[in-house]
Design a protein around this nucleic acid. Structure first.
Ligand SMILES: [Zn+2]
Length: 513
DNA sequence: CGATTTTGACCCGCGC
DNA sequence: GCGCGGGTCAAAATCG
């Protein structure tokens, strides 16, 4: 959230432009987050049926989106204007935002309004207002922003396709070679709604080329296609997990190390092996997070779900590297949803939000049916490994109209919202998703969800969470020197598959996007 | 021809 | 300050 920072004022015109843009973006994100939070709150309060909530969500989203649109639209204009360095303008825009967002929610639910205020305060006001108006402390503003913004959900899954089909439409806006990885990292932005702040990063695991690592950031402003909802839920749930962990950490210690706390939280998570916790879903399926870790690392808090089959990952416990390393896990599949609405939000009371969305998977089972509609097939069409060289550019699946989410998802969402405990919520969500997507019991013991990400092979999934609460946590915790990560791993009782670890070889590669 | 992708240039924070 | 690394922008090229 550089936005808040005073810097831009000081900076050159160009800088200002950028800042403005960023601010706008951030604003949009924040707004979205707020909306999501609101929604979650509403859900919590109500307990009520998903329907209303969903509507609310959608509404809030829509609203947010509109705001964002304005922002975006303004970008060009702003840019020009910004050239002149107009702080005031930026402020004005931002401010406008807030109100609009507020209005909708208020109308819909009283609860929302209340929360909104608080939320807004937390999210927007201080940083933005101050920032815009003042140069204030950059650090403060940045911290706040960072916290809010950065929560990320990382999903590791075996997927031969370039990108996961998550049901959302994405536009690639950048690609970069990551330092430790021969494979390029692709950056995508949600194009379902022009204003949607959701972004995702897609990268192949250096160690195991078959594993695709997708990281979602932000929450959608708009209603998601049903196909995308599942992932959204999962992501949201995961996010909630992080938040909860972070919260615990915060509560436990404000200071620098959130880590220990986090770890504890993580442990808890690990404990959860969700075997279809919720009776509702009760299918035998179990979600296992063979490795899930939460780590507080530098940049953003991230939760990683490892869908790949775990090797052993004995204890990853501490120090699992955030994204980068989680070694090799064999294949898996899952789909995760993330979405604007996200139930998880309910869980999250706190600030950070993120709403990841997933893209991944083609849910074949489900999807295949649908494919006709949009012809989304294509994604799957790509073949496995070759393709991964490139990330698929965009995956659009919208099509899948309603199939999937069904009950399981709904139940999951309810559970999530209902349950105070995030973890459980996550588990539920995941399970639900899994159900929706596909059920496969690989080993009876190790039930795994099989999804076909790439469309080709089914994979088992293991979920791992890792969160890095670097900046944000720092902010919250205020410890400049944050310890690095805490990761917790959740291993399912059973480890199904062996690992393999081949480091990939496929040397050539991935230059393209 | 519009929507996307490609890709090098930029920006920005961080560590030295 | 400089270099590094992550992320984003935006003009040009492509795709459908
Ligand atoms: Zn979106």
């Amino acid at each position: 959230m550089t936005i808040a920072t005073n810097e831009w004022i000081d900076n050159n015109n160009f800088h200002n432009f950028q800042h403005d843009q960023k601010l706008k973006r951030e604003m949009g994100e924040v707004g979205e987050e707020n909306n999501s939070l609101k929604l979650s709150l509403a859900r919590l309060v109500k307990d009520a049926t998903s329907d209303e909530e969903s509507e609310l969500v959608s509404l809030s989203l829509g609203i947010a989106s509109t705001d964002q649109h304005e922002k975006k639209k303004n970008r060009n204009e702003k840019i020009k204007e910004n050239a002149d360095l107009k702080e005031g303008l930026a402020l004005g825009l931002d401010i406008r935002f807030d109100p609009s967002a507020i209005k909708y929610p208020s109308t819909e639910s009283s609860c929302d309004g209340e929360w909104k205020e608080e939320e807004l305060r937390e999210i927007w006001p201080p940083s933005k207002f101050l920032k815009t108006t003042r140069n204030g402390d950059k650090s403060e503003a940045s911290h706040e922003h960072a916290e809010l913004k950065k929560t990320r959900v990382c999903i590791r899954a075996r997927c031969d396709t370039l990108t996961m089909n998550d049901g959302c439409q994405w536009r690639k806006y950048g690609q970069k070679m990551a330092k430790g990885n021969p494979c390029p990292r692709a950056y995508y932005r949600c194009t379902v709604s022009p204003s949607c702040p959701v972004k995702k990063q897609v990268q192949r695991c250096a160690e195991d080329m078959s594993i695709l690592i997708t990281t979602y950031e932000g929450t959608h402003n708009h209603p998601l296609p049903t196909s995308a909802t599942a992932i959204a839920y999962t992501t949201s749930a995961a996010a909630s997990m992080l938040q909860s962990s972070s919260l615990s950490s915060q509560l436990g210690l404000a200071n620098s190390d959130t880590v220990p706390v986090i770890n504890s939280s993580v442990c808890n998570l690990n404990a959860l092996n969700f075997t279809s916790g919720y009776q509702q879903f009760s299918k035998s399926q179990h979600l296992y997070f063979h490795n899930s870790s939460i780590s507080t690392s530098n940049s953003h808090p991230t939760i990683t779900l490892d869908l790949t089959t775990p090797q052993t990952s004995p204890h990853i416990g501490k120090f699992t590297p955030g994204l980068s390393f989680i070694p090799k896990y064999s294949s898996t599949n899952l789909s995760f949803p993330s979405s604007t609405f996200s139930p998880l939000q309910s869980s999250m009371l706190q600030q950070s939000h993120w709403s990841p969305y997933s893209d991944y998977f083609n849910y074949e089972g489900l999807i295949t049916q649908n494919r006709n509609e949009n012809g989304s097939l294509m994604n799957t069409g790509k073949q496995p490994f070759q393709g991964y060289l490139y990330q698929p550019n965009y995956i659009s699946n919208h099509a899948i109209s309603q199939q999937s989410l069904p009950d399981s998802v709904v139940a999951a969402t309810k559970a999530i919202t209902a349950t105070p405990k995030f973890q459980s919520a996550l588990a539920a969500a995941l399970t639900a998703i899994g159900n929706g997507i596909r059920e496969n019991h690989v080993g009876a013991e190790s039930a795994v969800l099989d999804l076909n990400l790439g469309g080709d092979m089914p994979y088992k999934t293991n979920a791992v969470y890792t969160s890095n609460a670097s900046r944000y946590k720092r902010i919250s915790s205020s410890a400049p020197n944050a310890p690095k990560r805490n990761s917790v791993i959740f291993q399912p009782s059973q480890a199904s598959k062996s690992s393999f670890g081949s480091s990939s070889n496929k040397s050539n590669r991935f230059l393209e996007q």
